[in-house]
Design a protein around this nucleic acid. Structure first.
Length: 912
RNA sequence: GGGCUCGUAGAUCAGGGGUAGAUCGUCACGUUUGCAACGUGAAGGCCACGGGUUCAAAUCCCGUCGAGUCCA
């Protein structure tokens, strides 16, 4: 990035100078003319530890100090967003304050909720999971405090100078010495945007980053810059994107050995005593070790094998062995990580993430299991649910949507689930270890990868268990990256937007007037064709609903003066609606009359309104945490996926169905209004966004029987118009996601008639009343099983009787039976076996639809498997088996005598 | 969204083309005042479901359903 970008008037007015760091070569600005290094790690150590650089604050006072400072300076305070980024489909968790405003605000489509604004946004980042607890500074969850200004060509709020000035003033307001502050030039690139940026450093710690987002990948008429091999161009919208680490500011204000001691002291001491480590709290030696550890860790990347290097350095500094240090410090690190992780879980579960094995639910489970493992290592008996509840109380119960009782239940269920996974895993590992031990082989790496990948057993645990079983396991250091490599092979390319090719064409067209909103019960309209291309007609207005929000498009016809065409698909590109036509052409300027297929439209509307009703009913029955995870409306039936942490029982399903139909019968008006996005979010919360996040300054708010959603679909005018809702089934799509399939309106009536048909025809087949069907089917099944047993008993009787009539001849002193007995193969095998068990040989053949042959041999000289082949080939078939027992058959019943004769010869030959 | 593993007796699992098994639990009988323990025996299986390959499928192949797990 250009050097000129950082030549701020503010720096110069303040008498600051630009210097080049002696250690790393980066440029930075400082008031201290004697300073030679940039102030960032690893150039400068954490010298704020033991020497706080701000007045003492805790999380709450520091947050308040920040937000009120910016409020005083013209910013509007915005409530935090959930940690689950439900308004985005590209990330699962909120990773930065600016993420709240992506993509619509940052791309200029939607104005910001306020401008300028300030917010303290809890963020979750799991990419440094391994370092949490170890480095003294890493957290999974942190609050990014920010002030954002969105500058447009028509409205300039403020830019670089003011941003840096505000930063300076804020630091001063919490007691920071501005002479110790440095601003390091650090160009920023991320998520398709770029811009100049400065890191704000004090005491060796980066406390804030001030990013001036001004470049984007989209080509504009201004000259571009090449950054890391990609071209970036100046954007119309220039965004002040700042990020102040709340926890870091608190840490720097306390100067404690680790960030954990600074930001959640109550939980640290609580978890320490739960782990029986309370004696370490006030021990000066431990404090010293931890301070040193954090200082050294601040200077290096401690991921992977570097951990040992860290241990060596700290050990050398306090003159003990690295192993001893490891014994002292490892439990402490686990305590810190447990505290951090439980706070992370309080946010995740409190913001209604349901643990599962997909998407953000998987991330929640990952953190839960990591925490449980550490708690086991620390021998903490207190349930995970208790720790999460305490964290929730510390943060503030009211800050979360999810009921604490549900959070607890989820934590308890997950704890149980993990315990049974471990148990199952242990058994599998023991079995495998025994196998390899018996073969005196090492357990191969492929087995370990399978165990981890398919059964979720940690490699360290595999090694432990296998070693106890006496097997040898080699575990490579780069195990996880090997697994990752295996997965990366099967990556697919992102799909391209299919309507992108029409973007340019529709740019010159006015937005289509959406009659389907104003007159949703009308089916006829008149319009003028504005454009016609590629099979698509664009009109000035339309009643045809385009596909969107899980609702398929309308179909119908359009008639012009000299043509009648079928509308088979309708799509929306931006604000322009494209009708795909077949069976003719339209011309620009044609006056057309459009007709929507009435039954289909009504069916879709009923299903759509029904979706909202069922969602609301499900919330009533299952709890406030119910969120829609996806939906697909159809004209026959529809489905809706719900996030829920356990199976929906048949009883719950019936209750949802009943409640839904009661809402229909209440016949409430469906209220639809357009409301300001920000106000609507504040009024109704983010549960507005059930089916994705619509763009635009305003939201179309649909209220159906107490359910309030931002929704662009067509709806009935009152709940009564839905008619009836019949739930077809509930499916368990994925752990944490239940799919409800249902039908509404006339389709529901058809469906119920269909069910009745099934019952009627079944009861007719059994000649019973429908009411008696379950009992009768049950009785038949039981009788069928009993009769099967009876047949078995009788056939063993038959075998017994036949055995008595068997003529046993003696060939070379061996009892041999060769006979045709027309019984099924199973009985023949039983008989033959009882002969061979006594050391004899039996060759039995029986004719049914085909000929079945069994040869059992109790004498090693006679190989049943070999002889049977020849016998069966005479019958026109094949056969085979083991040397002691062989079976086969063939179609040619006329050859049985010959086959038995040849078999006899072969047996005699073998015995002599 | 993609990948992998697994569905066999009430439970936990062996078997992996050729007679469906083990352990625990259950029941009966025996020893015992009773319990526990032990001994003897028995009951208990649509080998998840539906197709296919084969002389023959619990076993191999395809699909469906269910469970588990890793990754984005």
């Amino acid at each position: 990035m250009l050097k000129e970008e950082y030549q701020l008037d503010y720096f110069k007015e303040q008498g600051m100078v630009r210097k080049i760091c002696k250690a790393c070569g980066s440029a930075f600005w400082t008031r201290d003319s004697a300073r030679e290094i940039c102030g960032d790690a690893p150039c400068e150590p954490y010298n704020f530890i033991g020497e706080p650089v701000f007045k003492t604050h805790n999380l709450d006072t520091m947050r308040e100090a920040y937000l009120s400072f910016f409020e005083k300076h013209g910013h509007t305070r915005i409530e935090r967003y959930p940690v689950a980024a439900r308004w985005r489909d590209d990330i699962y968790l909120t990773i930065a304050s600016i993420a709240d405003f992506q993509p619509f605000v940052t791309s200029g489509i939607v104005p910001p909720p306020a401008n300028p604004l300030t917010i303290s946004q809890p963020c979750i980042r799991l990419n440094d999971l391994d370092s949490v607890g170890r480095s003294g500074r890493h957290l999974t969850t942190f609050e990014m405090m920010a002030h954002h200004a969105f500058n447009t060509p028509s409205e300039e709020i403020y830019w670089k100078d003011r941003t840096v000035e505000l930063c300076d003033q804020f630091i001063a307001s919490i007691g920071g010495d501005l002479n110790k502050v440095t601003f390091k030039e650090s160009p920023w690139i991320g998520g398709g945007n770029a811009g100049p940026s400065v890191e704000v450093l004090i005491g060796g710690l980066e406390i804030a980053t001030l990013v001036f987002m001004s470049l984007g990948r989209k080509k504009t008429d201004q000259p571009g810059y090449e950054l890391k091999g990609e071209m970036y161009y100046p954007m119309k919208l220039r965004i002040v994107d700042t990020g102040y680490g709340l926890e870091r500011l608190v840490w720097a204000s306390k100067g404690s050995p680790t960030i954990y001691d600074a930001v959640f002291p109550e939980m640290v001491s609580h978890v320490m005593s739960a782990a029986g480590l309370s004696h370490m709290l006030d021990n000066k030696d431990y404090t010293r070790i931890l301070s040193l550890n954090a200082k050294f860790a601040g200077l290096m990347d401690i991921s992977g094998t570097n951990l040992f290097q860290l241990r060596k350095k700290v050990a050398a500094a306090i003159d003990i062995s690295p192993e001893k240090l490891d014994r002292i410090i490892t439990p402490m690190e686990k305590v810190y990580a447990t505290v951090d992780h439980t706070r992370c879980l309080a946010y995740m579960l409190g913001d209604c993430i349901v643990p599962s094995n997909v998407r953000e639910g998987y991330l929640a489970r990952l953190v839960i299991r990591r925490t449980l493992r550490m708690m086991t290592d620390l021998k903490i008996e207190e349930p995970l649910a208790d720790l999460i509840e305490q964290q929730t109380r510390i943060i503030g119960m009211k800050k979360f949507e999810q009921d604490i009782a549900v959070v607890r239940e989820i934590a308890e269920r997950e704890t149980e689930k993990y315990a049974s996974t471990l148990e199952r895993g242990t058994r599998i590992v023991q079995k495998i270890a025994k196998n390899y031990k018996a073969k005196s082989q090492r357990v191969p790496l492929t087995e370990i990868i399978t165990l981890y990948d398919s059964h979720g057993i940690q490699p360290e645990m595999i090694k432990d268990i296998a070693t106890r079983e006496g097997a040898v396991v080699d575990l490579p250091d780069n195990f996880y990256s090997m697994v990752a490599d295996m997965h990366s092979e099967s990556k697919k390319e992102a799909e391209v937007n299919p309507t992108a090719k029409y973007d340019e064409r529709v740019q010159g067209l006015p937005p289509t007037k959406k009659l389907y909103y104003e007159q949703s019960s009308d089916i006829e309209f008149e319009a003028v064709v504005l454009d016609f291309f590629d099979g698509y007609a664009v009109t000035d207005q339309t009643l045809f609903y385009p596909e969107g929000g899980g609702q398929p498009s309308d179909t119908g016809t359009m008639v012009s003066a000299d043509s009648m065409v079928r509308i088979d698909d309708v799509i929306k590109v931006g604000e322009v609606i494209l009708h795909h036509i077949s069976g003719g052409v339209l011309q620009r300027g044609d006056r057309v009359k459009g007709m929507v297929d009435e039954e289909r439209r009504w069916s879709l509307m009923r299903h759509h309104t029904a979706t909202h009703i069922i969602l609301h009913a499900a919330k009533e029955v299952l709890g406030a945490h119910i969120h829609q995870a996806g939906a697909q409306k159809g004209s026959e039936s529809s489905r809706m996926d719900l996030r829920h942490f356990k199976h929906i029982t048949p009883d719950e399903l019936r209750r949802i169905e009943t409640a839904s139909n009661r809402m229909i019968m209440a016949n409430q008006t469906v209220e639809i209004s357009t409301e300001d996005r920000t106000k609507a979010e504040q009024k109704y919360g983010f549960s507005l966004y059930q089916g994705g996040v619509p763009p635009g300054r305003d939201l179309r708010i649909v209220k159906v029987a107490g359910d309030i959603e931002a929704c662009a679909g067509t709806h009935c005018q009152s709940t009564g118009e839905v008619g009836v809702i019949k739930i077809i089934r509930v499916e368990h799509i994925q752990d944490g996601i239940e799919r409800i399939e249902f039908t509404a309106g006339i389709a529901a009536v058809y469906y119920m008639q269909h069910l009745e048909q099934i019952v009627t025809s079944s009861s007719e087949a059994l000649s019973v009343q429908p009411d008696n069907l379950p009992a009768t089917v049950n009785r038949f099944f039981t009788e069928w099983k009993d009769q099967k047993k009876e047949i078995e008993r009788m056939s063993s009787k038959v075998v017994e009787l036949e055995m008595q009539t068997l003529v046993v001849e003696s060939i070379a002193g061996i009892p041999v039976v060769i006979k045709r007995i027309d019984l099924p193969q199973k009985e023949l095998a039983q008989m033959a076996n009882s002969v061979s068990e006594k050391g004899g040989i039996a060759l039995l053949a029986g004719a049914g639809e085909t000929v079945r042959v069994v040869l059992a041999s109790g004498d090693p000289r006679v190989n049943a498997g070999e002889i049977i082949g020849q016998v069966c080939s005479l019958l026109g078939g094949k056969g085979g088996g083991k040397p002691t027992m062989a079976q086969g058959g063939g179609p040619d019943a006329g050859q049985i005598d010959l086959a038995l004769k040849v078999g006899r010869e072969r047996i005699i030959a073998a015995l002599q």
